[in-house]
Design a binder for these strands. Structure first.
Lengths: 320, 320
DNA sequence: TTGTATGCGTTATCAG
DNA sequence: CTGATAACGCATACAA
């Protein structure tokens, strides 16, 4: 910066003001801009961060990036941050509590301006002094949570199955015992089933329980090679896929014998057709909400739960 | 840091030396560590970066993160960097040249210690003054390139198809005209076909050509509802998947009528079974090579092309 | 409106 | 082996 000032024949402060787009006399501005151009000057973000105590960096804590849903989320969040000239500090928790806590330290070292976290750690201690937004997990009214309308999605799935002619349904899911937003998928589903008088069963596998429990559940509900359900709503697309593979093993056809709806909206290779019929999460909108919330955290009181609408999309595992 | 020094009753420099694990008298060290603990001190990375001119950050330029191959790559690269206490600055190019160049500027502002780039921009100007490693693209001997053994993979695919009883094969790919490492997949395939006396055809679609050209190509090689190829090697798993969907439309069964091998090693949901039979890229090793190369770029002369072994994995589209 | 000077947190140099 | 101090690049309060 000193070089630029010398080249332009102005003082340091003037260069700084030009860089930051503040009021500067036209002649001076021109001279500085010319010098910046000539020397190819780029400001040093460490220097600026040190002085302003703002790093323009947001930490993103997420289990990984190879799960396609997380990959999509990371993509949109980074895009939204980039629009606002912010950077992202990637933190992969790998569902590991120790790592999540390790990251809180990293995040402090790096003086990030905020944190967006998708975490399953029930004991996570949330730093009070850093703007914090969670995805899919409600902690307290002081920690904004962004989620899609999980209840509505479950509700929508049940109505869709009914509409497609299903007479007897089941809801299957895996996941932790902790109540988070996705837990509401079940509630929504049940709510609609009750409303419609649609018979349903529920099979939920908590963490650590073997996948084969699903196989037992399904075979228990088979007779003469026929499954007694003709509609399944499954907690995630990934689980739906695995269940469908299982059904294949028993010669049960999808969607002819049983129709299946998943949740998330995963596409083949991230951009082709949906892997299964599904309730699609509005990932782009979720990303936008997270980013604008975490950045405006200092002013005004933000809502503590932002719930975004989902939609249904056929993916070949239903008869529509 | 000053607070810590005061608390411990030592000078600033001593605290710094303790933090950095340098030689310090035992009593002093203990005192400092106690004070650090008590005050919950974490060093400020901006301050350190300003002083040392090292940010411990590596920029990763990649098209996106929703494509599962890229998602996997980002994951492993971040993990490898994390092991070495480095951070990653994510840069999504979206295959857009302007953005790639915009990123070079960002990267300068942030004084990154190095760049790892997977890019298709043929005119990308590589900064001379920053350690730079590319994936899958050879620029010049002074820019290290990490790639899997694409030639070997193509070769392996042909031998595999032959071993599985194929009599007439074809190689299909899309992509830019620019010659990069993945281009060698074709060369390897042809090389093995020639060696084995296995008949083959090649259909390559350059950027901008419509996908329907593949449909034309395939229907041209059908007679009486039968495809004249009984083995296909396809440039990427994603394309392989799309081709298989196309074949289904014409009632051609995979793997009964034609066996298909793709390239990359994409799994369903990033962790389940392979989407198609495939030549698997050693993503973890690629990540490791990129990271260790970009970090050791200052010393010793590194090889200009690092070529890593691939392996074959069945994925249901071959009869093995 | 522009120039000058200070301090942000850290490490490195040098003197003790 | 430790203490004191300068310098890194920048933004800003204050003086001109």
């Amino acid at each position: 910066m000193a070089d630029v000032a010398r080249e332009a024949g102005v003082a340091l402060g003037t260069v700084s003001r030009v860089i930051n787009g503040q009021q500067v006399g036209e002649k001076y501005r021109k001279r500085v801009e010319k010098a910046v151009e000539k020397l190819g000057y780029q400001y040093n973000s460490s220097g600026r961060a040190l002085r302003t105590d703002r790093t323009n960096t947001i930490a993103l804590i997420i289990p990984n990036t190879y799960n396609p849903y997380f990959g999509l989320l990371v993509h949109h969040i980074n895009l939204e941050l980039e629009k606002r000239n912010k950077k992202v500090l990637l933190c992969f928790s790998g569902y590991d509590r120790n790592r999540e806590e390790e990251y809180i330290r990293l995040v402090r070292q790096n003086r990030v301006d905020g944190i967006i976290a998708l975490t399953y750690n029930p004991e996570l201690v949330i730093p009070e002094d850093i703007p914090f937004v969670t995805i899919d997990r409600f902690f307290s009214v002081s920690v904004p949570c962004v989620a899609s309308d999980n209840f509505g999605g479950g509700y929508m799935a049940a109505r869709k199955l009914a509409e497609l002619g299903c007479r007897k349904t089941a809801f299957l899911r895996t996941g932790s015992t902790l109540t988070n937003e996705p837990s509401k998928r079940k509630e929504g589903f049940i709510s609609a089933c009750v409303e419609l008088g649609l018979p349903y069963e529920v099979k939920a596998l908590d963490d650590g329980m073997p996948f084969s429990d699903f196989e037992d559940f399904l075979t228990d509900h088979m007779s003469g090679g026929k499954l007694e359900f003709d509609g399944l709503f499954i907690g995630t697309d990934m689980l739906a896929w695995r269940i469908i593979q299982l059904l294949k093993k028993y010669g049960i056809r999808v969607p002819e014998d049983v129709q299946v709806i998943g949740f998330d909206g995963i596409r083949m290779f991230g951009e082709l057709e949906y892997v299964v019929s599904t309730i699609v999460q509005p990932v782009q909108e979720i990303a936008e909400a997270c980013v604008s919330t975490v950045l405006s955290r200092h002013l005004s009181n933000v809502p503590s739960l932002i719930c975004l609408p989902v939609r249904y999309a056929p993916g070949g595992t239903t008869r529509d």
